[in-house]
Design a binder for these strands. Structure first.
Lengths: 197, 197
DNA sequence: AAATGGTTTATCCAAATGGATTGACCAGAT
DNA sequence: ATCTGGTCAATCCATTTGGATAAACCATTT
């Protein structure tokens, strides 16, 4: 393990607990236990290093999501129980890997200023849509039609990032897994009813 | 209109198209057409000015949300039509006031580093929950019980920020108002069904 | 007209920042 | 042993940053 790996690890750490914008080359170098000149040598620039570190963060993020979706596949449970189990695990992950999740939100902001990041986030969102839709409905990704991915997948993805924000900023008032399922069902029921509810 | 007002307007502009982290005192001063020393005189520090400007952004944000909710109250329309009308207007606003919406996301990140901002965002989220729930269900805020606000309101708020992210980062693949309603109903139907769908 | 108090501007400054340079180091090939 | 290509660290550098200082400005009061 040379400086290169140390720098990547240090950059990932900084990305999590300082965020993209406020990490300096010296922050990274200190976290990595390396002279900051090594950044220029191995990566060319601070931004290039951070971009590469962000890819590591996306992998970790994928693992966390997978862990949550894995919780929602008990064949003996009802769909609702499975759905709540998913959120129970997701919410736990929000707390357990708080900094990581925070970094994913900041990535959304950073995407606006760094084209490469934008591409990565777009890719991640597309994969999430189909992944969520398939796992949620219990249909293999191959046989999943694009329309369902765009509807169910997009909604689940939106709930994921939206509820993440609530849990990060105001966990006191954020909805529990039951609240989520209740709200979803109540909202859909209201929309479906032809007369006023 | 003295420097103070100009600085606030300039800071708001910078907040929108440069974001909190990357706006410098000189950016603001230039945008305001004012010497940057005036920031110290009128607000004490860059962060204090940005915090005050952020409150202006929150007001504008409230107006945009209100405009969208107003689109969802046609008494002749079905609940579903009203819901889609809301999202049609919301999505239009995402495009029309792109920078403003972007600033609200960055606020979520900034909340992590600036307690005052965190308070403001928490407040905004609480108001949004009850506001959304009441407008959506057609129930005055006074008679709305806390549980419904936490469930339906939280879900709608989550969809709002989650779908905003999708529309900001990848409008090409973001769901339309029909997609949203479809997905919501399909997801709820799946959860409700006792056997597998 | 002179004085006053609030405001604005022109500079100054120390610290921080990203990056470049330069010479040391070191394992493996010659 | 020495040469070589890659790695590393110490140091330097120009620029940018947020903020402070102090002098000018200006309307109002005396």
């Amino acid at each position: 393990m040379g400086n290169r790996e140390d720098l990547l690890a240090g950059a990932l750490a900084c990305l999590k607990d300082r965020g993209w914008a406020r990490t300096t080359v010296r922050d990274i170098a200190t976290a990595a236990g390396v002279n900051h000149a090594a950044i220029g040598y191995h990566f060319g620039s601070r931004d290039a290093l951070l971009t590469e570190a962000f890819m590591l963060a996306m992998e970790e993020w994928g693992d966390e999501v997978e862990k949550a979706t894995a919780a929602g596949v008990d064949p003996d449970a009802s769909p609702r129980e499975r759905y709540e189990a998913f959120w129970r695990e997701a919410i736990a992950s929000f707390g357990r890997s708080r900094e990581l999740w925070l970094a994913t939100i900041e990535a959304g902001v950073q995407a606006e200023h760094t084209p490469k990041i934008k591409e990565l986030v777009q890719m991640g969102m597309q994969m999430s849509r189909t992944g969520f839709a398939s796992k949620l409905l219990g249909v293999p990704e191959e046989t999943l039609d694009g329309q369902t991915a765009r509807t169910v997948g997009s909604i689940q993805l939106a709930l994921m990032s939206g509820l993440l924000m609530q849990w990060l900023i105001d966990p006191e008032n954020a909805p529990s897994e039951q609240d989520i399922a209740d709200g979803l069902v109540a909202l859909a029921a209201h929309i479906t009813n032809s007369p006023r509810a």
